[in-house]
Amino acid sequence: MEYKNPHIPENINTSKEHPLKDFSILLIGSIVLLLIGTVTLAFGGGWLASKIPFSAEIKIANMYDLSDDTDDDSAPELTAYLQSLTDKISEAQKLPDGMKVTAHYLDDNTVNAFATIGGHIFMYRGLLEKLPNENTLVTLLSHEIAHVKYRHPIKSLGSGIIVSIGIAALTGGTDSNIMGETGMLTVLKFGRDMEQQSDEAAAQTLYALYGHLNGGAELFEIFHNMREEMGAGESYEMFSTHPLDEDRIENFSTIAKIEGWEEIGELTPLPDFYRSALKSRDRAHQKLSAGTK
C-alpha cells in the first residue's frame, strides 16, 4: 500500500479577504454603535435626572462639602446684594415652590459664572468686575437662575453619570468614584439648547424687571471681547456648547422684536459699594478656588 499526502490548496482554513476590510467594517460599526449608545444614554440619563425632585437634588448637593470652596466672607455686602437680586429674579421667573437659588461670590480672576446642582449659582470676581451696570448683572444672574429653573445642572450631571457608568461597563473599568469625580465646583456642561433656553429666560426676566432689554446684550459682548483679548477667537460653533456670542446678541434682538420689547431704556447703575467690594482683596489667606479643585 502506498501512502501519500495530497497537495491541499491554500485558503481553505483561512479567509481570502483582506484583513483591512474586516477591520474597517468592524471599526465603523462599533463607532456608530458607540455614538448611538452614548447619545441614548446621555439623553436617557438627563431625562431620568429631570424626574428627580428638587428636594432630592438639594440632598445630593449637600453631599459635597461646600464650606471650603465658597462664599468669600470678605465681601458680605456684595454677597447680600447678589442674593437680593437673585431673590428678585427668582420671583420674576416664578420658580416652583421649594426651589431656592443661592448666590455665591468667588474671589477669583476667572471671567465666568455658573450654576450647579442644589440651586447654587457662582459668580467669579473676574466677571463681576467687567459688568457695567445692574441690567447686565441681572441678565447674568437670570441666565444662571434659569439653568436652575429648567433643571439643567441635574440633567447634565445625570447624563454624565449614566454615560460614565456605560463606559465603565463597556471597558470593564471599576470606577467607583463616579459621583466624586464630578465635584460641586465642576463646571457642568450644558447643551446649546439649554443655553439658548436660559438666554431667552434671561431676556424675559430683564423685561419683567426693567421694562426694556437695554444692557442685556452687553453681557455677551463682554464674553466676546474677552475671547478676542485672549486671542483664542471663537471656536467652531459645532464644537462649542455655548452658541456664538454674535448669535446670542442677535438672539436677544430677535426676542425683543418678536415680543415688541424696547431695546433702549434707562440703565440702572450698580450700587456704590459694588466696585469697592470687588477690590477688597487683602484677605488673611487664599481660599481654595475652583481652578485648583
Binding site: 479577504e17 484583513p19 477591520f23 468592524l26 462599533s30 454603535l33
Partner: peptide, 21 residues
Amino acid sequence: FKSFVAGLRNLFGGQMRSYET
C-alpha cells in the same frame, strides 16, 4: 492589529478571521 480586530469582533460575533491564519 489582530487582537484589536478580534476585540471588535467580540462585540458583534461571527468568524474571527484574524485568528484563523
